[in-house]
């Protein structure tokens, strides 16, 4: 079995994050792909009917936008920080700025502060126009440093 850290170091070597993202069932279920696009990590949630939260408008469920923001922040963290396992979410604050229309949604995260154990990430989601974000979030994640205590790279 390929361990999480093997998967991540391979992805960092090849510049292809798809294998990490595809290993996560929930992202497959939502149709979220996250990869390097023109030198930056961009998350994309392909529109699908099962993402709708309001059939009258129609609009995407706020939770799906939250999941895209969180996942994009996680992948940004894996890319930049050293962690022996997937970053663990501690807090997230999501601001919903515009309703999510039934089209593809994108997200991009920026690490605000990286410590040894905790990372703070700001992340923004948009649809057709990047200058008109539909949501933004700030999140804290816990890392597991590669050291004597956290060397455990895989096993449950």
């Amino acid at each position: 079995m390929t361990t999480f850290s093997e998967l991540v170091s391979k992805a960092k070597e090849t510049g292809r994050l798809a294998s990490v993202v595809e290993s996560i069932p929930y992202l497959r279920f939502l149709g979220i792909g996250i990869d390097l696009v023109g030198g930056e990590i961009v998350g994309k949630m392909a529109y699908s009917k099962h993402l709708i939260g309001n059939t009258a408008l129609p609009a995407l469920h706020g939770g799906t936008i939250g999941a895209l923001l969180e996942s994009t922040a996680i992948v940004q963290t894996i890319w930049e920080a050293e962690t022996a396992r997937l970053p663990k979410i501690v807090t997230i604050t999501i601001d919903y700025l515009r309703s999510g229309r039934p089209v593809d949604t994108y997200a991009r995260g920026v690490i605000t502060k990286q410590g040894r154990r905790v990372v703070n990430v700001g992340v923004e989601a948009w649809q057709e126009d990047r200058s008109r974000p539909i949501a933004r979030a700030n999140a804290h994640f816990l890392l597991e440093p590669f050291d004597g205590t956290g060397g455990r790279s895989v096993s449950p």
């Binding site: 279920f29 799906t64 999941a67 969180e70 449950p156």
Partner: peptide
């Protein structure tokens, strides 16, 4: 389908 960490099988925060 809700799993966010394939190693621990814990569901995704989302």
């Amino acid at each position: 389908k809700l799993v966010g960490d394939p190693v621990t099988r814990i569901i995704h925060g989302g």
